[in-house]
């Protein structure tokens, strides 16, 4: 599969504290890649680095173009949708307005067309359409965030801990839908997760991050069977 996104020697820092120390990784077109690691390993920072939300050095190539150093909004406009940690809901706005904002860079007609598809994945959003988004449950907000990201019609979807704070049943539902989105739309996905079992189940490629360094890379199957990973991250 051709590579869609590639990071080479990526460093990132918040002010004086460095979080990423020169990591390399790639995301293949049409595939699901997952980034595993413990709390504080730098997973969220990696996604933020791609979206230009932190100061970085090193290179990030997306579809053959260098995007490092660009403004966050420009990176969104080249086709990278980012579902941030905490879901980034516009709490004060309605569900409909949240979704409309997802399609902000596209014509109104495209929004109406794609909305049906989002409702197909997340029928519950349709029922909540005119409700204030802040009143949604955590699971619904996660669905709203993914729906918002899909409406950008991205080439790459970045997901930051989609399972965070959700009940196990809801987590399963979300991951099933993510899997469907990948299959049905050939959507490339880079997902960051603490829940390694779930993430590996829908991924083809996987990386393991430890304190800002990439310590393992390979196919999801390889990582899932690796003894060390099993013990530390899969918990059996």
């Amino acid at each position: 599969m051709p590579k869609l996104l590639e990071a080479i020697g990526l460093h990132a820092a918040y002010g004086a504290s460095k979080v990423l120390h020169g990591i390399d990784f790639l995301v293949e077109e049409g595939g699901v890649t997952c980034l595993l690691g413990a709390n504080g390993a730098g997973k969220t920072t990696t996604l933020r680095a791609i979206s230009g939300m932190v100061r970085t050095s090193g290179e990030i190539h997306f579809a053959g173009v260098r995007i490092d150093g660009r403004a966050t909004e420009d990176i969104a406009r080249v086709g990278i949708a980012h579902v941030p940690d905490g879901r980034g809901t516009f709490m004060e706005l309605t569900v409909e307005e949240n979704l409309r904002l997802g399609a902000y860079t596209r014509p109104d007609r495209a929004f109406r067309e794609d909305l049906a598809q989002v409702f197909d994945y997340f029928p519950r959003l349709q029922q909540r359409m005119y409700q204030q988004a802040g009143t949604l449950s955590g699971g619904e907000q996660q669905m709203l965030a993914i729906g918002r990201a899909l409406l950008l019609r991205p080439r790459l979807l970045l997901l930051d801990e989609p399972s965070f704070g959700l009940a196990p049943l809801i987590v399963e539902e979300v991951f099933t839908i993510l899997h469907r989105i990948n299959l049905e739309q050939r959507m490339s996905i880079l997902v960051v997760e603490q829940n390694a079992n779930l993430a590996l189940a829908i991924s083809e490629r996987a990386y393991l991050l430890e304190t800002g360094r990439m310590v393992m890379a390979g196919s999801a199957a390889e990582l899932a069977t690796n003894e060390a990973i099993r013990r530390s991250y899969l918990g059996f």
Binding site: M53, A81, P84, G88, F90, L101, Y104, T105
Partner: peptide, 19 residues
């Protein structure tokens, strides 16, 4: 709508491409 969004949540607004 984009102006309201930018006021409420600038981070998320940038992520959907709002300047």
């Amino acid at each position: 709508l984009a102006m309201r969004a930018a006021a409420f949540n600038p981070v998320s607004s940038r992520l959907v491409g709002i300047r």
